[in-house]
Amino acid sequence: MSVSPEDFRFVCAFMRDAAAIVLDAGKEYLVETRLGPVASRAGLSGIAELIREVRRDRHGSLARSVVDAMTTNETSFFRDVAPYQHLRQNVLPALINARGAERRLKIWCAAASSGQEPYSLAMLLSEHFPQLETWDLQILATDISQTMLARCRSGVYSQLEVNRGLPAALLIKYFRKNGLDWQVDERLRNRIEWREFNLVGRGWGVLPKFDLVLLRNVMIYFDLETKRGILANVRRVLRPDGYLFLGTAETTANLDDAFQPDSMHSSCFRQRAA
């Protein structure tokens, strides 16, 4: 299924308006591979007809499906390894020490995608910080895509997905075989609160203050002003001594001077003292 130049321009504008996502020229293939299945599932003849329908109703269920499909990311368990090592060795011990009196820790995975990140974090906490079992621990995982959130809640992953980045020892401890797939066990699933959230929407006011925010591999989709706006909002929901993690190739430099990189890990950021 190919996309015409005019339809591609429409999808670019639509995604910018609906989710502040910037699609560059040359990303036609992404539109074709992501929206082809949406058109098929909806019983439409192809992408052209799908886009005709979205033009007609920009807030209908098909428009919603297009946003879902275009915002779905490929990811893996313990993606990039090093951020999780930094969390385990430095960030979480420091936070647990700092919050010892209140015994409360709030963590936000702000772009949960297909759920591997929050589940990786939940496994890491369970394995290495069992003392948190008795704490008031909140792991909030949000995503703009309802489809992805439903997947996350089910905790079902294909063999190919559990093959990526997940230590075998954790696979046998936290997953059960379910036909050809693998499912996260119920105890771990219940440790995570899943919620729909649009990073460029107006919902920031209802968020609590977090000790740790993971906003990994999502800023890449936004334009400069949107990135600045999101980081300004993150500052409002991150406690002054909290930690922000971005993707390995992402930075706050030239976006928000209130953040500075953690000297021990380049994708971890702290707020400068006021």
Binding site: D80, A82, T248, A249
Partner: peptide, 10 residues
């Protein structure tokens, strides 16, 4: 990478 034998950074 999990075995500490190569990095997936980047």
């Amino acid at each position: 990478a999990l075995l500490g034998l190569t990095s997936t950074q980047g």
